[in-house]
């Protein structure tokens, strides 16, 4: 093999393996999950009511394997309309993996294998004839680190509607963009500089831009993967207010490391531990009177 000589100024390329930012976490960091006997002993089945009255997302017996690692074990959980479900638990417990199953972002990880019944409004998410593009249009996602595209603020928000063909003319597109920015609480800050790059905004603004980008596609469910972990307290407070408003309209599943945040924004809370869903219940019950020993240990700060 004749080698290609790298030109000066280029360092050798970084090998792209599993995605950064939380998504790849379960693969390497939680060896304990592989220990089936251990998880079965500590939490043989979920405590509390997994169902939701007005369920949009219905998961029954969901399992995820990353290669040889059994990352999610037999999860059953509903997410209802106009409901915010907080997913909490120690690092590597499978919360992020769980929400990435709901819009099939795990598809991008080569070694991931998902089994079980995942339904969105009654249709099987993992059915062969399910269209991922349509699914992801219906299930939006906001990531841990704000990731605006290298485009203008306007184009960032218009990206989704454009690719999906949601607007038939420029006026409709403008409408969607303004409406989304408005509902994301960003319109007053950026309306004079829609042509400037989205990457020029502050971290909190960027994250709200990403939320605006997500709701511009008019999804039914919004998944949030620790959306505030990279932000300062003030920006976090604004996002939490925003989540509260959005819950009027969408079903929201939010992964968080902050128990205060879970307590503030969610209606129901689900506690994950070593790939198991240990306990689900109304948020105030989980934080004041948890049924399971592990949940109690976690919310009282004995570990985590």
């Amino acid at each position: 093999m004749l080698l290609m000589d790298k030109e000066p100024g280029f360092v050798p390329m970084r090998e792209r393996g599993e995605p950064k930012d939380g998504a790849g976490k379960p693969a390497g960091k939680a060896p304990a999950i592989a220990d089936a006997a251990e998880t079965d002993r500590i939490a043989p089945e979920t405590v509390g009511d997994i169902t939701s009255k007005n369920a949009v997302i219905k998961v029954r017996g969901g399992n995820v394997h990353y290669g040889d690692t059994h990352a999610l074990r037999n999860i059953s959980l509903d997410v209802g309309r106009n409901e915010v479900v907080a997913l909490i638990g120690p690092s590597g417990c499978g919360k992020s993996t769980f929400i990435r199953c709901l819009n099939r972002m795990n598809d991008t990880i080569e070694s991931a294998r998902v089994t079980g019944d995942f339904r969105l409004d009654g249709t099987d998410i993992y059915a062969r004839d399910t269209d991922v593009v349509l699914l992801r249009a219906r299930v939006g996602m906001v990531f841990q680190k704000p990731n605006p595209f290298p485009k203008s603020i306007y184009e960032n928000v218009a990206y989704g509607p454009r690719i999906h063909g949601l607007a038939s003319n420029r006026a409709e597109l403008d409408d969607i963009v303004y409406g989304s920015l408005e509902r994301a609480g960003l319109v007053n800050e950026v309306k004079d500089r829609l042509d400037e790059p989205g990457t020029g905004l502050s971290g909190g603004q960027q994250q709200r831009l990403c939320i605006a980008r997500t709701i511009a596609v008019n999804p039914e469910v919004i998944l949030m993967d620790e959306p505030c972990s990279a932000l300062d307290p003030i920006a976090t407070a604004r996002i939490e207010d925003l989540i509260d408003e959005l819950s009027q309209q969408y079903a929201i599943a939010i992964v968080t490391h902050s128990m205060q945040q879970a307590a503030r924004v969610s209606n129901r809370t689900a506690y994950f531990h070593l790939g198991r869903l240990v306990e689900v219940g109304p948020t105030d019950k989980i934080f004041t009177n948890p049924s399971h020993k592990l949940t109690e240990d976690y919310v009282t700060g004995r570990f985590g």
């Binding site: 269209d131 593009v133 249009a137 690719i163 063909g165 949601l166 969607i176």
Partner: peptide, 18 residues
Amino acid sequence: MAMLTPAETRRRVDASLR
């Protein structure tokens, strides 16, 4: 902003797929 209904959104996305 005139919000699209979920059903209309789904129809438009579907129409763009081909």
